[in-house]
């Protein structure tokens, strides 16, 4: 299958999930009314439900899933490790810690950008640390273990903030961030994050071709013409901006970044550069689909997206880890 074809198919899938998300839901909006509202007609209530509640939430889910899927593909290419992923390596947890700090201190210095900025800063700190370790030629297993430790540490600091939370509202905000959710996200929430994602996509586009050469290792990649420092910085920056932005919207949602690239890799001939777009599209589609399913589930209390995704993603992660050969590098 050609690279264009897989992207078209996955893109069409994302479009389909978005349309379904707009049309289906738990409120008493009959399907014909929802269709009418989606097409620009219908009454005011239907219009609000479709355009101001369902679609922004679905778009947030697509954006978060796409950002995490792309981050996973980028980090895997840079670290040459199929298990690298923002959630597994503690990048998401560090971003979440940044968001929690913003909430804990009620920081308003940067206005609505405070949460995304601190989330990106947390993601950047974690990604930098991981890449320094990766450059020091630690084994793939060690790198994953460091990520696990980093994840636990950031989680513990987040728990500490919750433990000392000034009031119940701050606490409930933080819990939402730890569990991961796109409930009640508006277009405004998205708009504060989109600039970070645009810069992230730009950096990724500039440096992603280097990942193809990095398949042969850092030294050989340099002799092929890769500017190693630039590539490393660009990929790290892109992964941190994408992950930080995603966490700023939804909190921690794990395993997308590992499952999406794993599933599409055979369709791009295992090419680490061609992997990025399909991973983003599949990640976006999967998260939006998961959110749609839990929105429709007949439960009294809505499931948290991050919880549900982890319940599906963690077993797949274990499966991939068990089947990965040559982990000692």
């Amino acid at each position: 299958m050609s690279r264009v074809m897989i992207n078209l198919i996955l893109g069409a899938g994302v479009g389909l999930v978005l349309i379904l998300s707009a049309l289906l839901g738990s409120s008493d909006l009959a399907l014909p009314h929802a269709v009418a509202a989606l097409l620009g007609g219908g009454d005011a209530t239907a219009h609000i439900i479709v355009w101001e509640i369902r679609l922004p939430r679905a778009l947030a889910a697509v954006g978060v899933g796409a950002a995490l899927g792309a981050s996973g593909a980028l980090m895997q290419g840079l670290l040459r490790n199929p298990l690298a992923e923002p959630g597994v390596l503690g990048v998401s947890a560090s971003a979440s810690l940044g968001a929690i700090i913003a909430l804990y201190f009620g920081l308003g210095l940067l206005g609505a950008f405070t949460v995304p900025v601190l989330a990106v800063a947390g993601a950047l700190a974690a990604t930098l640390m991981l890449s320094v370790l990766a450059a020091a030629r630690i084994s793939a297993v060690q790198l994953i273990l460091v990520g696990v430790g980093l994840s636990s540490f950031a989680g513990a600091l987040g728990a500490l903030a919750m433990n000392l939370a000034p009031n119940r509202f701050a606490l409930s905000d933080m819990v939402t961030w730890m569990l991961g959710s796109v409930t009640n996200r508006s277009l405004d929430d998205l708009m504060f994050v989109v600039p970070f994602w645009i810069v992230g996509v730009g950096l990724a586009a500039l440096t992603a071709p280097g990942l193809r050469a990095l398949a042969l290792g850092e030294e050989t990649a340099q002799t092929l013409g890769v500017h190693l420092g630039r590539t490393r910085a660009g990929v790290i920056g892109a992964a941190a901006l994408l992950t930080g932005g995603a966490v700023a919207i939804s909190g921690v949602i794990g395993f997308v970044g590992i499952v999406a690239p794993h599933l599409v890799r055979p369709f791009v001939r295992h090419d680490p550069t061609d992997l990025i777009w399909p991973s983003a599209l599949l990640g976006g589609g999967l998260i939006a689909l998961a959110d749609l399913v839990l929105r429709l589930a007949p439960l009294d209390q809505e499931l948290r997206l991050g919880v549900m995704v982890s319940m599906i993603g963690a077993p797949i992660f274990i499966l991939i880890a068990a089947r990965t050969r040559g982990m000692g590098r």
């Binding site: 040459r80 193809r212 990095l214 092929l224 013409g225 001939r269 090419d271």
Partner: peptide, 20 residues
């Protein structure tokens, strides 16, 4: 080689400095 790329893609890396 970190990824199971195709033989053609591996050999094509020889031309990386001319396009990538």
């Amino acid at each position: 080689v970190a990824w199971s790329i195709t033989g053609g893609d591996l050999a094509a890396l020889g031309r990386y400095a001319w396009g990538g």
